[in-house]
Nucleic acid binder design. Structure first.
Lengths: 331, 331
DNA sequence: CTGTTAGCGCCTTCAC
DNA sequence: GTGAAGGCGCTAACAG
């Protein structure tokens, strides 16, 4: 195995460990050319690689951040991860990705594990259920950035879609097109922030646009059960349009539609928050409200690395990203 | 910050560090109930959390593995990662995911970084370009498992799709349906193994089934340029069926098809290696050869953790997974 | 310019 | 049953 240590290099090159350390950390201002070359050769000869665990222990910095997503199977998460990675990579930071599955227990466990591992900071899609934990991180001044969701009562920088705007775009577009009985469907879990906000805005807009005020038009259930709910919904209410809360919900709705020979948009109009790879390929092409996932991921990474480097805190910790309306033909 | 160390707990509880260490590692066979309780309280009181960097340094094990995928934007990668994560999580292992982007330089950099970080093992989708590096890992007996691709000359456990079978399924199905001019399109890069194997099998089958023997029917280009190639292909050859090598290639082909009002399967038949979320939703539903991504990811994780735990090496290091033929209506 | 000396936080014999 | 001591590999003053 790679048991070559700094001490080995030192003896091989005939200098002391600290000189090697200097060299490795590129602090060769005060180093003679000759020793520099000797060290270089020794390193090559021995195939030495510094042990970053040891360095981390000493420096109290691991050059690694943790990312806890709700579910990596969402296209949104994937894209966000990708852009966080790209950004971090360019700054020589590493990323550890974890799936909390919107499970508070898993989230807690991961946050603990990651902190035990001394990661320098965390980007998390919070479940919202571990308030004490979040608070503790605030109190101890641990670098954290929330993504996709925020916890209103907590002063933690958050990178978010402007959900109010997204729902507004969807509802207003549908209303303009003449739809009157609009339903909102997602698979989001309960306490999660965007769902709450989306529901709030949806209700407000229902009043403004004189849509039916009826909780029955708002359904959120776990993936795999949405189809069933949709069946019940269509059987009981004169729904003529649906807003899908994300890609996974959209997929379920589309499957139902297919199985029941529903014609879009004639029998049912559809609009989705989150674009999907096949949005323009579907028949009819899907009208969609896209999230700028790459930009959001990058922003979160920038914020976090900024905090880690001790940049001054901004007063306004909420970064709202505007949704992008893509009109196609499903409503 | 969380500066509470073992020493703090020790003084607080009135015992020595080593006793705390015993406790933390659950070796309380020879510990009095009273000290056990005192320690427990001290830990809770001080909110102590063991520093795993320090532990790793001492124990030479980080309980972390690295995964280097070719591109996280492939659905296949996502699913594989997900299942690796699930498996590792259940064994209290962490996963660091990196995107090599099929870029040998990036791959090398990541392998180095990960090893410097002392990860206990690696699962990699090898680019195939860093032979010396791979060899060095073999030589130093570093736990590695290859996924999706293998390097024929290297004795490294590899988890693979049975590509021969996959191509065979595709070609034979198309031949049965009466197609005579079949093209193979992927965005895979050059030296990558599955591409080579697929091409080889494709050529063999071309002979067997008396299809045109013509390199022009085999195209692999970067994502974003496949559409262009497809245009050229259709202009120059009487292609009546295409095999898409993966989801991203499929998407490009589908976009081209849409833009040019090509009717599937009448004008052009299509079959894809890799299922996609919208496979059954597309019009017509897409006939597909699926990879068992979750099973493959799990297998790779099992193999790697097995190696890490020093399980005896198996003689046969190739794990071939059978593709699943899903007949729908695109050919 | 380079070496010496302390640790970083934890684990592990081996005494007591 | 518990403590003392040494060391994992590296860094950071401070000497020289």
């Amino acid at each position: 195995m790679n048991k070559v240590t700094m001490a080995d290099v030192a003896t091989y090159a005939g200098v002391s460990k600290s000189t090697i350390s200097q060299y490795v950390n590129k602090r060769y201002k005060f180093m003679s050319e000759s020793t520099k070359i000797r060290i270089e050769e020794a390193i090559k000869e021995l195939n030495y690689r510094p042990n970053s665990v040891a360095r981390s222990l000493k420096q109290k910095s691991t050059f690694t951040i943790g990312v806890i997503v709700s579910n990596i199977l969402h296209a949104f998460s994937t894209q966000v991860i990708r852009s966080i990675e790209d950004y971090c990579h360019s700054l020589d930071f590493h990323v550890i990705v974890c799936n909390a599955d919107d499970n508070p227990k898993k989230e807690e466990r991961y946050i603990q594990m990651l902190r035990d591992k001394q990661v320098d900071g965390l980007i998390v899609f919070p479940t919202g259920e571990n308030l004490e934990l979040y608070e503790e991180m605030v109190k101890t001044n641990y670098p954290v950035v929330f993504l996709d969701r925020r916890i209103p009562e907590l002063p933690i920088s958050s990178v978010l879609l402007d959900n109010e705007q997204a729902v507004k775009m969807a509802v207003e577009h549908l209303v303009e097109k003449g739809y009157k009985n609009i339903a909102l469907m997602t698979n989001a879990i309960h306490r999660v922030y965007p769902r709450q906000e989306r529901v709030r805005v949806f209700k407000e807009l229902s009043i403004v646009h004189q849509l039916p005020i009826d909780e029955g038009y708002i359904v959120s259930r776990e993936i795999g059960q949405l189809k069933e709910s949709l069946g019940a919904l269509l059987a009981n209410k004169p729904v003529d349009a649906i807003i899908a809360g994300n890609d996974l919900a959209l997929l379920e709705i589309l499957n139902y539609v297919k199985e029941h020979d529903i014609e879009i948009p004639k029998d049912l109009a559809l609009i989705s928050i989150d674009d999907v790879s096949f949005g323009n390929l579907y028949n009819p092409p899907l009208t969609v409200i896209a999230q700028p996932a790459f930009e959001m991921g990058k922003k979160a990474a920038e914020l976090l690395l900024g905090k880690i480097n001790g940049d001054l805190e901004e007063k306004e910790p909420i970064y709202l990203f505007q949704p992008v309306f893509i009109e196609r033909a499903s409503c």
